[in-house]
């Protein structure tokens, strides 16, 4: 039971991170119907930006921790968003309306490019960071096994909840959200009634990138090591989460992320840790076979 609780806590933490990345996939897919293959790399850039911000802050001298976190959060979101915007502008926008596979292939190229760019600029070795937030609560103890929830885990979970609330309000209550939903339904029609489609799509990428940057920040703090390659696996798992939840559905992405996090935590807790990545993909395949629309996705009605 104690072990179970511990895995549950770990799983929810991990799931928060995946959920934040998954939203980027699901939003982009919803609005332009493409898999933004480079999204995992955007998250990786977010992790690097936050790491560098922390390092710079340490260099200029000690700074009150909450302020440092806030600074890193803002920096990561800001700079990563610019990357997200640029990627869309350079690699995807010229291909809108091109044949089906073109943007996907361009996205794969972009993903390889960004990965290697960071490798060239920052080196291939893993980057270890001193733990910034340590300590935690002991929830229960039995037979020498202590269940703890660290401050960091609390930080991650709370921040995720706050961001997702803000984000949901943004989508549901603002004119920006309305423009997004209109563009999703029918791009031509949306343009005709005065929605700036290009800008709406750009905003979608920016929002996705900002959330991925937060996930990058979290992962930097949580694991303490990052390298240029982390985007690949995380991206794939987040995409799996998006599909699991029902691609195009934002609550679905959150739910999917949570489930993938839990599956991974329990799998490595109870089975073999080596195959934890396989577990996530096997679930993806199973979901696609038995419920191609995902858990919360709407069935697609084919227009002929």
């Amino acid at each position: 039971m104690e072990y179970f609780t511990q895995q549950l806590i770990n799983g929810v933490t991990l799931g928060s991170i995946y959920g934040l990345i998954a939203i980027g996939y699901t939003m982009v897919y919803g609005i332009i119907g493409m898999i933004n293959f480079a999204h995992g790399e955007i998250y990786m850039i977010g992790a690097f930006v936050s790491m560098i911000t922390f390092l710079v802050l340490t260099l200029v001298g000690g700074i009150w921790l909450p302020l440092a976190l806030l600074a890193a959060l803002i920096m990561a979101m800001l700079f990563t968003s610019i990357w997200g915007w640029t990627v869309e502008r350079m690699a995807y926008r010229p291909l809108r309306g091109s044949f089906r596979l073109a943007p996907l292939i361009s996205a794969i190229g972009m993903s390889i490019f960004l990965q290697n760019l960071v490798q060239v600029l920052q080196g291939a070795r893993v980057k270890p960071l001193q733990p910034l937030i340590s300590g935690g609560f002991e929830i229960m103890e039995k037979d020498g096994f202590t269940v703890t929830i660290s401050y960091l885990q609390i930080f991650i979970i709370v921040l995720t909840i706050v961001l997702m609330t803000i984000f949901t309000l943004l989508i549901n209550k603002t004119s920006l959200g309305r423009a997004q939903r209109a563009t999703e339904q029918d791009r031509t029609m949306a343009a005709l009634i005065g929605v700036n489609v290009d800008r709406t799509i750009s905003t979608t990428f920016v929002m996705g990138a900002a959330l991925a940057a937060v996930a990058g920040l979290m992962v930097t703090l949580y694991y303490g090591v990052i390298d240029f390659y982390i985007g690949f696996l995380a991206g794939m798992k987040a995409f799996t989460a998006a599909v699991l939840g029902g691609i195009g559905s934002i609550p679905g992405a959150m739910l999917g992320g949570l489930l993938i996090g839990l599956i991974e935590a329990f799998w490595s807790g109870y089975f073999t840790i080596e195959y934890k990545d396989v577990a996530a993909f096997s679930i993806l395949v199973l979901v696609l076979i038995f419920r191609p629309t995902g858990l919360l996705g709407k069935p697609e009605i084919e227009k002929v």
Binding site: M90, P94, A102
Partner: peptide
């Protein structure tokens, strides 16, 4: 720079 050029080339050719 091999893979860097490689990824860049993929994007450029597609565009």
């Amino acid at each position: 720079y091999r893979m860097l050029a490689f990824g860049g080339l993929m994007v450029l050719v597609m565009v």
